[in-house]
Write a protein that binds this DNA or RNA. Sequence first.
DNA 1: TGTGACATATAAGTCTGACTTTTTGATCGC
DNA 2: GCGATCAAAAAGTCAGACTTATATGTCACA
Lengths: 233, 233
Amino acid sequence: MSTTGRGLHGQVLETLGPAITAGEYPPGSVLRTDELAQRFDVSRSVMREAVRVLESMHLVESRRRVGVTVRPKAEWNVYDPQVIRWRLAGADRPQQLRSLTVLRSAIEPVAAGLAAKHATADQCAELTECALGMVAHSRGHQLEGYLVHDVAFHRVILNASGNEMFARLGDVVAEVLAGRTHHEVMFEDPDPAAVTLHVQVAEAVRAGDAVRAEHLTREITVGALQELDILAP
Amino acid sequence: MSTTGRGLHGQVLETLGPAITAGEYPPGSVLRTDELAQRFDVSRSVMREAVRVLESMHLVESRRRVGVTVRPKAEWNVYDPQVIRWRLAGADRPQQLRSLTVLRSAIEPVAAGLAAKHATADQCAELTECALGMVAHSRGHQLEGYLVHDVAFHRVILNASGNEMFARLGDVVAEVLAGRTHHEVMFEDPDPAAVTLHVQVAEAVRAGDAVRAEHLTREITVGALQELDILAP
DNA sequence: TGTGACATATAAGTCTGACTTTTTGATCGC
DNA sequence: GCGATCAAAAAGTCAGACTTATATGTCACA
């Protein structure tokens, strides 16, 4: 899946990045470039490039005479897809999953509403196709096939919203959905009510009914929140 | 304002980053590290570090034997604060402002609803203080003072939501609001209705009324959308 | 005892030059 | 035409020397 880091600096990042996002180095920890270069058996220039990338993600700060200090989590660029992947792969996975699901619950309904207004005929067609695919794979433990269409569905919605920032969340949503199927054990077939909702969203978008599309999608995301026990008592 | 890029590579980035995000180099354009190093009069190692950062933002892709190619806008890390700043400062400003405002309209109401549930007593106090500050500066062309309290208000909401990803949007919202006051000419005093809404949101959060806080905040963001002529006819 | 100026050590930052590796595209033989 | 081979181009890597900023300790003086 994740392309094994391009170049030496990429390989270093794939070890160091997850280590930092997993909290192995508490905030304020100081690393030295030279020591890291030795540890990873790379030249200083390669290690410097890796540190620059971590710095651009606000995971660390590099200062003269002091070294490379790890920044507190509150300052990380938590929307960086790389950071999200690292956190999802490590000890921070539960919290990352929760905050991403809340994010989805805010974005996707609005995106669906916009999609109802902006979706092209092609996108509408693709959407119904995805929904039908979900229905077709909703019974008999065809979880993989279901996932493919589910991911595609939400991707189309986000793209059809016409908002570039919404569209860029497609990968993130894909990883959340994939995680639900793969990591969190999913024994049973998907909830039939959820499948129906997807079909109805596709219909609403096709009909240009923004209010309905938004409302239905909100129901979907409420379901996602409930799966993680995020709800109002 | 923006700290003049730390180190030589930072200075290079402050020229090259805005140039790319402004579309000066169309997607597919090929740059060569050596040529860039000459152009900016820095060593290759410094230029390589700058390219690495651009690469981590998905603005460019570096491949052997071909060079550093500019990626299409659809692949950029549009949530990177640096990228957002560059786009807001350049030719892409209008579109960036619109997509950010739509993003706000999705996030902030949900954040306000969560804030009503999670806000601490301190945060509630700070919130009312901000709202009162807005009222106090809402008449007589005290736009700067109004802005300060407006920004603080939305920051508190986002932080009080308890969602780390929402909280990280504080800086972005601040820049959007500041832009509205500074760049977009704002002759008159702020809309009294908007001021009232902020006060009411503070009350709702204090009262723990999530539904009301969400609804009121949605009205605020609708106003922001209307300012940019983003509406449903 | 506290405070300021000064010296020193440290780690990042920068530059240079040589070398390696990958990949494109052209050439050549079939 | 087509596949294998080869050469050039650009990024990638490394090593070493040098520069610069700065945290910290020292010492003199109040």
